[in-house]
Design a protein around this nucleic acid. Structure first.
Lengths: 204, 204
DNA sequence: TTGACATTTGACCAATCGGTAAAATCGACG
DNA sequence: CGTCGATTTTACCGATTGGTCAAATGTCAA
């Protein structure tokens, strides 16, 4: 429908600047807590100039959420149902932890959206996330039934991976206040390794 | 300094109404995302009437955070350093999970505040939470060194308990979207029991 | 250079927000 | 009943916000 206009170098550069600034601001203050002026200033542009590239504050936010969901679900899709169960799940956990370390803003933005009832992505969760999780939960259940890993509810196992890994991005301030370390992730990975090593081992 | 005025029945009733409404609204939309009109309407009072009992929006929010922190740290303080290590830690985990089930709004309010950089309670975390965690981390480390539980970093063990339990309150929408159950907590407790049973067992 | 189009800016607006002031109403007690 | 303080409401204010518009400026190809 929409005529595919070529997209200038300036266009792609500024759109990128805006989205990056928006990620900074939205992930720190939530949707309503952020202002267009903040985003504009963070992007080094004027407010009306922002609205030349995105027609509303909501459009920036929605665009960010959409981009984020892809990044977020990739590690799960990379789970190989033909690989060694424990190895695969440990690798998934480590990929999620790496995501928390490398994309903390995305993690926090997602967390804020969910915390506030996911008003803008509830249907996406229903339509995309749920079927995806269902599929992999079934695989994990098979592994569990076949005795290749411990008998654990596959859904709550996934929740455990999510919560333990995302905690280090979402509660970063708290973690760093309590620990006095620059980088809590090495010790975190060590601990999560231990947790899932022990959890996943099939009962004798 | 302040003369201790008796506090009317009406006063205590309305203050309670306001704080309860404030908890509803703030935990759903964060500080900046909430308006005095929303809170007033949720409390069944007029906006100027709200400000008759609390002199600002911030005062309501701060009061809620202060109340919440007490509730939140109680389970940790109830940890008995003379009890059986694994039993005590399992009991602490279950108390935290119960808190998530029974006080989800408090959990979410705390999560939102931390997510946004804890601008209003960073010093409280530093002054109150950190020493408290330090004390109990030392106890856990002793248990660990004496071989009474597994060798696991005490701080990250505590983080694991926090993240796994609070996840069910903070990400409630996501959990309920993926599961189709009314009450995810029974299965959650079962899974968390398994996780910590296996994690805490001393290595042979 | 010039013309056409893309980009940027400054001035502005209506709505919403937190908060105030003063008048009106309520309620307990002598 | 009447009164005095506690409570509630009505009307309002200044600041901030998301967004608009027209004019100004930049860019690039012919």
């Amino acid at each position: 429908m929409a005529s595919a206009k070529p997209a200038t170098r300036i266009q792609t550069r500024n759109r990128d600047l805006i989205l990056n600034a928006g990620l900074d601001v939205f992930s720190a203050h939530g949707f309503r807590g952020s202002t267009l002026d903040q985003i504009a200033s963070a992007a080094g542009l004027s407010k009306p100039n922002l609205l030349y590239y995105f027609k509303s504050k909501e459009e920036i936010y929605t665009k960010l959420l959409a981009r984020l969901l892809d990044t977020w679900l990739d590690p799960l899709k990379a789970l190989d149902m033909d690989g060694d169960p424990k190895t695969e799940l440990m690798a998934y956990m480590r990929r999620k932890l790496a995501l928390s370390r490398d994309y903390p803003r995305e993690s926090r933005l997602f967390a804020i959206e969910i915390l506030q009832g996911a008003p803008r992505i509830k249907d996406v969760l229903e339509a995309d996330l749920k079927p995806l999780v269902d599929r992999y939960a079934r695989i994990i259940k098979e592994w569990s039934d076949e005795g290749k890993i411990a008998q654990v509810d596959p859904y709550h196992l996934i929740f455990a991976i999510w919560s333990l890994t995302q905690h280090y991005a979402d509660f970063d301030v708290q973690v760093r206040t309590i620990l006095n370390e620059d980088d809590p992730f090495p010790k975190a990975e060590e601990t999560l390794d231990l947790i899932f090593e022990r959890l996943l081992a099939p009962s004798s």
